[in-house]
Design a binder for these strands. Structure first.
Ligand SMILES: [Zn+2]
Ligand SMILES: [Zn+2]
Ligand SMILES: [Zn+2]
Ligand SMILES: [Zn+2]
Lengths: 141, 141
DNA sequence: ATGGACCCTGGAGCCACTACAGAGTCAACG
DNA sequence: CGTTGACTCTGTAGTGGCTCCAGGGTCCAT
């Protein structure tokens, strides 16, 4: 099952990760450096594919680079306890839930201010609510 | 009602905007430069307070600097039609709604993977789902 | 006159990439 | 064997929206 090594372009296609991003991951020590061809081309193997898919999946789930680094370190030690991973997922879930709550408040505010009835800026509800928050619109003072 | 001019610290306290951020806004041309004292201190007046509160409110609503720039330009022309503002709010609302939808999917995925039942990495559902997405946990292969 | 709170500028750093420029490599085709 | 053209290399700079710092200068009350 040991396949031929492939270039960075192949790795990019197989993972959906940008070539520049792959090189960036190597530079920051997230992806182990592969061997090189005589001319200096990176030559990747299956293990790089697995590794990068792990990273990609973590990023898609919104984990930070540092979190993924920690998760990768953990994944390398099959006998270690996995509380760390558990805690990281719980923390990140909290973060995501907080973000959703914030954005939902934002959405409601934006919904309340859209569809201004005035036709010029002076009567515009949108400009008005940016100028004096809380005051919806005051057509005549 | 013309009050004494105040320093950058006063403006910061009255708006909740960081001093460094106020200087940054001036540098990128978002906040008009105030007059200076003989020693070079910035001296702000009420109009700067209004202006910066507008910016602050826009940022709190998640608008980009460029959008706020456009909204400020609009706010300066009371006789202009306000369709532009309307369109910007609608676009931004779309953006926020899309973000909420994305995060909700994320949240559900994170909920599904947390509380791994295994005690070591080898059986960990979390590490497992990062390694092979879709496969929940496969205790024995 | 002095202390201490405040302010100044310019530049670097943050995150996670992305976009180049200018050069070199590789494999296939003729 | 030579040429083409797709691919890859390094290094640097830019993105957004700040935030932090060093090393100085100013202001005002005592
Ligand atoms: Zn997180
Ligand atoms: Zn309007
Ligand atoms: Zn927006
Ligand atoms: Zn586990």
């Amino acid at each position: 099952m040991t396949l031929q090594p492939f270039n960075i372009g192949g790795l990019s296609r197989q993972t959906g990760v940008n070539i520049e991003t792959i090189r960036y991951y190597e530079k920051i020590g997230l992806l182990p450096p592969p061997t090189r061809s005589q001319g200096g081309f990176r030559q990747y193997e299956d293990r790089h594919l697995q590794w990068l898919r792990f990273i990609r999946r973590g990023r898609d789930l919104g984990f930070s680079i540092d979190s993924i680094r920690a998760l990768l370190t953990l994944a390398e030690r099959p006998d270690a306890p996995c509380e760390g991973a558990d805690r990281m997922v719980a923390l990140h879930l909290d973060e995501v839930e907080r973000k959703i709550a914030d954005l939902t408040l934002l959405r409601d505010e934006l919904r309340a201010m859209k569809n201004c009835c005035g036709q010029v800026v002076a009567q515009c509800q949108i400009i008005g609510s940016l100028t004096a928050p809380g005051a919806a619109q005051q057509d005549t003072i």
